Amino acid sequence: MDSIADELFRERLYFKNAIPIDARSFILKSESSQTHRDILIKQTNRTMSVDTTILERQIDGVFCTDGMLHYSPVLRRVVYVYYYRNQYILADTNLARVNRFRTIDTTSRARIKVSIIDSDGSTTLGVPPVVVNRRSCVFGVWLFIQSGLVGDNEDPNDLSRYALMDVYNLATHQYKFSFYLPFAGRNQLTSFAVFENRIAAVYGQHLFAYEMRPDAFWD
């Protein structure tokens, strides 16, 4: 059977990230042309609705709200994980019902410094930011977050050898467990995805598959 691509966006729309909700709609992360702050948009082939309140400003409204956009078809919830604070967000597909939850890290306010470039007035990060949540992935009701920081009872050198993964149940809003994902040789983790009880992890040009114990996810 042949597939025909249809035009979805009828107008010019700049976006930073997009996730499909179904065959005719997307959730987009964009930047307001008026405030220049990050916003979320639901776009269909007929309508566009904009939300300016879900991503809460702490400093500049751009870098401080930066994060990763996901979707759980099982829960029919949009998931947003901040990079620089200990929070993730659940919202329905209309961006109407919104709930906010804390991760096990203690960094509630983004530790970033924003600088203005004199030549063109644009902004940039003045110093390397403190990354709380480095990468994330959603599968079913499970949220996997690669932590950017170690806990008080952990060895700081561990982050040079392993990716520290924290797992949360999005249905119960609870932290479940953590585990270490070893780096492949000297290559650090660059991306990962979860399928059932398997993790596909990319280290530079290498792809590895790991299997997790299924009983780890039993409640």
Rank of each mutant, 00 (worst) to 15 (best):
T190D: 12
S178F: 05
F183M: 08
P182W: 08
A193E: 13
N153R: 12
M165L: 14
N153K: 13
G148A: 05
D158M: 14
V167H: 04
R186Q: 14
Y168Q: 02
M165D: 04
R161F: 12
F179Y: 14
G148K: 02
A193I: 14
G185D: 09
G185E: 09
N157M: 11
A193H: 07
R186D: 15
Q188I: 11
R186C: 07
E154H: 00
V150K: 01
H173S: 15
F179V: 06
N157Y: 09
N169V: 07
N153H: 11
F179C: 07
T172L: 10
E154W: 01
N187Q: 13
L181Y: 07
N157F: 10
G185F: 14
Y168K: 02
V167I: 14
N157Q: 12
L149F: 01
L159D: 01
F192S: 03
N153P: 00
R161D: 09
P182Q: 08
A184V: 05
K176G: 03
N157R: 10
L159W: 03
A193M: 15
Y162C: 07
Q188M: 11
F183D: 05
L181A: 08
D155P: 06
L170R: 01
V167E: 05
A184C: 13
S178K: 13
S160H: 09
V150F: 14
D152E: 11
S178P: 02
N169D: 15
Q188N: 10
